[in-house]
Design a protein around this nucleic acid. Structure first.
Length: 412
DNA sequence: CGTCCACAGGAATGACGGGCGG
DNA sequence: CCGCCCGTCATTCCTGTGGACG
């Protein structure tokens, strides 16, 4: 006990002395928009040119931006929007800009609600018909007489689940507006996204197109260096650590966001250990930590039934991996539900849950045909068992299930 | 070569909680 | 406060299907 206090004392005093690592941690968060974006000058220029007409009070072409995650789409767009907003204030032109992340918003309704609130139209966060909401949006917009520059980030996520109805309406809204105009910037991570769109929507939306290429390792290095100058005290970041961050992120489709995360977490680890320099070891540790936290958090926040499905897959993989298929999973799932006294969902629904877990990477499910013996899904765990055990051990109810031996498996 | 297993996964429909406008 | 519409989750019913077996 005595020892514990000593340890904590050290942590406190470190904290009170202030960080010896970070000058400004905020700079490494990925929602931070830097003043300088290395290797994206061309894109900034192009986007600026396209959107410039809004400053003179006329709408600009709609733009479609593609590129994988962490290629700077969001940063570049936010940067340009910020400049537009600044300039318009300066010269007093009626431009309003708005940035919505469709995946975070989740539904058409919430996207529309965000659009409304950004033009100061108050709407309830649920309850209205989508059409009604759209009418209000249109009315408020018309009353204000502005050029509204809407950015829809991660637009593919919305369209894949909800369809392109909202986009269709948005692309046609100008026909019914006289005093105001809307221009749209659509951002998509998925290059094949076009296929999901109605051709009419596509042609209106992609009057201009931009593709963001992944960063190379060298480019990521430059980005990191730029931020590290502000984020860390001088001499804290070793060159090897920086290079490793860049290399790891480059291997993962040139994802700068990933690189920034690595750098930040590596810094945090170094800080916590009381080290004064960030080394390659810290970076490797950071990589492990990030992956672990991601998985841990996604399991923990799962709805109960999904957790049970995951547990079923876990038990099957432990006792009889060869039989790990939908039907078997469902049997064990039902058994566990019975054990903890909640009523099981149908197989149809569980099948859907398995798909969701598959998408999240917690399970690996692939359709296989066993010929005479039917067609099903072969299901395996997509993550180390260790993490799973770690998460479920924290829950009173699930803890016991971990070591449970399904009756179902005894009979075979 | 046809059959038939054990599901996949689409479509329609229902239960439910939340918020509206009148 | 009521009737209405919404989004979400779940059920019910359904048609489709790859390939080993006979």
């Amino acid at each position: 006990m005595e020892k514990r206090f000593d340890i904590l004392d050290e942590v406190f005093s470190h904290f009170l002395k202030g960080s010896r690592i970070f000058r400004d941690r905020e700079v490494l968060r990925h929602d931070y928009v830097p003043d300088y974006l290395p290797h994206r000058e061309e894109e900034i220029l192009r986007l600026g040119e396209i959107t410039a007409p809004t400053l003179k009070g006329s709408p600009c072409s709609n733009i479609f931006i593609y590129g994988k995650t962490g290629t700077g789409k969001t940063a570049v767009t936010r940067f340009v929007l910020k400049k537009i907003a600044q300039k318009s204030k300066e010269i007093n032109s009626p431009v309003k800009v708005c940035f919505v992340n469709c995946r975070l918003a989740g539904t058409e309704y919430r996207v529309l609600a965000e659009l409304c609130s950004s033009i100061n139209e108050k709407v309830p966060f649920t309850g209205l018909a989508v059409g009604e909401l759209f009418d209000r949006f249109k009315k408020a917009l018309e009353k204000q007489g502005v050029i509204f520059l809407v950015t829809l980030d991660e637009i593919d996520a919305l369209v894949k689940i909800r369809g392109d109805a909202l986009l269709y309406e948005l692309t046609r809204i100008n026909e019914n507006l006289s005093k105001s105009k809307v221009s749209i910037i659509g951002i998509s991570n998925d290059l094949k996204f076009k296929e999901f769109l109605d051709p009419r929507v596509l042609s209106t939306l992609s009057e201009e197109e931009m593709v963001f290429k992944p960063y190379t390792a060298e480019e990521i290095q430059d980005i990191l260096m730029e931020r590290a100058k502000i984020a860390f005290y001088d001499g804290v970041l070793s060159e090897g650590a920086l290079k490793l961050c860049a290399a790891l992120a480059a291997a993962e489709h040139g994802d700068a966001r990933r690189a920034l995360d690595l750098l930040r977490v590596a810094g945090e680890i170094a800080e916590r250990r009381g080290d004064t320099k960030i080394t390659e070891d810290h970076v490797r540790e950071a990589q492990k930590r990030i992956e672990h936290d991601r998985v841990y958090e996604s399991i923990r926040s799962l709805p109960t039934h999904s957790k049970i499905v995951l547990l079923s897959a876990f038990l099957l993989s432990k006792f009889d991996p060869d039989r790990s298929m939908t039907g078997e999973i469902y049997n064990i799932y039902s058994e566990i539900c019975d054990q903890i006294g909640i009523s099981p969902l149908t197989q149809r629904r569980v099948s859907e849950l398995i798909n969701e877990l598959d998408v999240m990477g917690l399970l690996n499910a692939r359709v296989v045909s066993l010929g005479r013996y039917g067609r099903t899904k072969k299901i395996g765990l997509g993550i180390p068992r260790k993490i799973l055990i770690e998460v479920f051990s924290e829950d009173e109810i699930f803890r016991n299930i971990l070591s449970y031996r399904p009756k179902f498996l005894l009979s075979s």
